[in-house]
Nucleic acid binder design. Sequence first.
DNA 1: CAATCTTGGCTAAGTGCCTTAGCTTTAAGG
DNA 2: CCTTAAAGCTAAGGCACTTAGCCAAGATTG
Lengths: 191, 191
Amino acid sequence: MPRVGLNQQTVVREAARLADEVGFQQLTLAALASRLGVALPSLYKHVRGADALAQKLAALATAELATEMTTAAVGRSGGDALRAMADAYRDYAHRHPGRYPATQRVPDPADPEHVEAGERAVGAVAAVLRGYGLTGDDVVDATRALRSALHGFVTLEAAGGFGLPQDVDRSYHQLIASMDISFRSWPGTGR
Amino acid sequence: MPRVGLNQQTVVREAARLADEVGFQQLTLAALASRLGVALPSLYKHVRGADALAQKLAALATAELATEMTTAAVGRSGGDALRAMADAYRDYAHRHPGRYPATQRVPDPADPEHVEAGERAVGAVAAVLRGYGLTGDDVVDATRALRSALHGFVTLEAAGGFGLPQDVDRSYHQLIASMDISFRSWPGTGR
DNA sequence: CAATCTTGGCTAAGTGCCTTAGCTTTAAGG
DNA sequence: CCTTAAAGCTAAGGCACTTAGCCAAGATTG
């Protein structure tokens, strides 16, 4: 049997592609193995199991998303940065419907790259918010608020939760515009 | 064998309880059957299968949530109504961690009760927003925004996505306060 | 009251997926 | 060339869902 020459990198990357095609929930070791041209148990030479694969996929997707968010916001500030980052966020979710859900997995403390990716993603959001003049606990509150809004919208959209025919793009931009207003006069007490 | 005397009602209700105990993802026909004291295939006399059970659970949970949201907001308006409804929403998610995820399932058009429950939930949100003077497409946009914020926050919280030690209750109330500000001067063009 | 019929339970069996154990063979390195 | 680590493989077990088909409990009806 000629060896296929897999390693963890190639396995996880193909898993990401497959997830985008069939959906995160439908990502299965069986499908991945057949896609890679090996028998299912062979995958265990590269990944500890299905859950570990999901974790590695999460690390990959989180890193990608963090990079795209950061890139979008670089050189901008305030509402400009906010809009650019929000658009990048939703765009990533659209382009990678299978990877996006993986980004919500809590980083595995045992995987430094995963932890670092999570920190970069949250840090990117926080940086934009500090650009609004927010400090201290207000940054934490506002970061949580923005993450909630972005994640909630993207998730509901992906689930088909917006039944009405009204333009979803418009709704998203209105949401971001309203967050912009909120951040400019954040209700917090400061510390 | 003495009959246990199940019907769809009792099965779905027990599924809801079990889901709250073990989590929505861990809700399994096997566990449900053993909990009810019957063999697994017996459940098929009352429910068409695992997916149908999830759908019925969704209908139940959505109806409960809609009722609690409506009840919380009754007799209030503006920021009062918004805060009461938002608190009821998050409170439901806390009390029913297994049912809450089910509420995000898109209502099954073939299940009138499910459809009606979904309409009640969205209608409750929309009613509060109309209390802010919003009309037309603005109501749609703002409803989507509020649902996104609530769902996103609750989901991230449940997933353990808020790593920092800062008070999560406070963050939630800040989020709601910021939405209140947004709705009072909604950025929309109106129609 | 007895015969009948519906129905809610059961066992048996098949599928798909994940996982572990243990073997074989490739290909790299001394 | 020989050795050996690693990358494949087959075999087998576990758990979940589903379908098929049987049987008895209990309601219905004459």
